[in-house]
Structures are given as structure tokens and as C-alpha cells.
Amino acid sequence: MKVLLQRCKNASVTVDGEVTGAIEHGYVLLVGIAATDGEKEINYLSDKIAGLRLFEDESGKMNLSIVESGGSILSVSQFTLYADTRKGRRPSFTDAARPELAKPLWELFNQKLRDKGFVVETGVFGAMMDVTFTNDGPVTIMLEA
């Protein structure tokens, strides 16, 4: 499982002209599920995301978690995080989970974050999405389990 985490000032996702999720400050999570992923990876990354200290304290140091900063989460499924570009010019996505596995795992991941008390907005699994956000910092971190 891979999560590209981006600290943001605001973010939204639109599908077919309709906003399906929007947040003010917090994290945009681009979430890739591998064919070998399961609940162990989901638990690890949801705990990691909840505990990371990526928000500035009164001294300007990244010392506060998303919980302490009162942030929200926008979660977007992103199978292209598993693109293999080592051969040729067209990426292969064979390491990405098939939709019938990836969708319930992505939904479980989002629920685990909600269970930790976060407001979690989402895109639409498998849809063509327009994701708009203002990266804060910028702070962008790749997490893997």
C-alpha cells in the first residue's frame, strides 16, 4: 500500500462537474492499493498518518499532528501509484490491486481514519476525478506499508 500525503490549505475533488469531497486545511491522501495488501497495511498506515507531526507549532516547527491541528482528510483512490515504468514507454499496473479488492480496502482505510475521529471526504472510486488543492509548504511525503 502506498499513500502520497500532501499537507494542504484546502482541497476538493470533482466528478462530472459535482464536488464529491472538500476540506479546508489537512491532508490530501492519494491512496494506492497493491494486490498483496490487506488489513495489516491499512492499520499501519492509518496509525502512521494519525500520528505524523507535519503541522507547525507556535515556533514554526513541524511538531503538531493532524489531530492537534484540527485538520481533515481528503482521500482519493490512485492505482497509478503502482505504475511500473522500467520497460518501454507505457506504464504497467500489474502490481495494483484489481478493483474488486482495492475498493473495499480503500473504503476500510477511510473508515479506520474516521474511527480515529477524522472528517474524511473522498473522491469516487474508479471515476475520472479533478482534484484541486493548495499544497501547504509544500509538504509531500510518500508512505508505504
Results as ranks from 00 to 15, higher is better:
Met1Leu: 03
Met1Tyr: 01
Leu4Trp: 02
Cys8Ala: 10
Cys8Pro: 09
Cys8Trp: 02
Cys8Ser: 14
Glu18Ile: 15
Val19Phe: 07
Thr20His: 15
Gly21His: 15
Ala22Glu: 15
Ala22Met: 15
Ala22Thr: 14
Leu29Lys: 04
Leu29His: 03
Val31Glu: 07
Gly32Trp: 00
Ile33Tyr: 09
Asp37Ala: 10
Asp37Thr: 07
Leu45Val: 11
Ser46Ile: 01
Gly51Trp: 03
Gly51Leu: 04
Arg53Ile: 03
Phe55Leu: 04
Glu58Gly: 02
Gly60Asn: 04
Lys61Arg: 13
Asn63Glu: 13
Asn63Val: 07
Asn63Cys: 03
Leu64Thr: 00
Leu64Gln: 02
Ser65Gln: 10
Ser65Phe: 01
Ile66Pro: 06
Glu68Pro: 11
Ser69Arg: 14
Gly70Trp: 05
Gly70Val: 05
Ser72Asn: 12
Val76Ala: 13
Val76Leu: 11
Gln78His: 06
Phe79Trp: 13
Thr80Ala: 06
Asp84Phe: 05
Ser92Pro: 00
Asp95Met: 11
Asp95Cys: 04
Arg98Gly: 12
Leu101Asn: 09
Leu101Glu: 13
Lys103Glu: 10
Pro104Tyr: 03
Pro104Val: 04
Pro104Glu: 00
Pro104Cys: 05
Trp106Lys: 10
Glu107Leu: 13
Asn110Met: 05
Asn110Glu: 14
Lys112Val: 12
Phe118Ala: 00
Val120Arg: 00
Thr122Trp: 03
Thr122Asn: 14
Met129Arg: 14
Met129Ala: 12
Asp130Cys: 15
Asp136Ala: 10
Asp136Val: 10
Gly137Val: 05
Val139Phe: 06
Thr140His: 08
Ile141Ala: 01
Ile141Lys: 06
Ile141Tyr: 05
Met142Ala: 08
Ala145Lys: 12
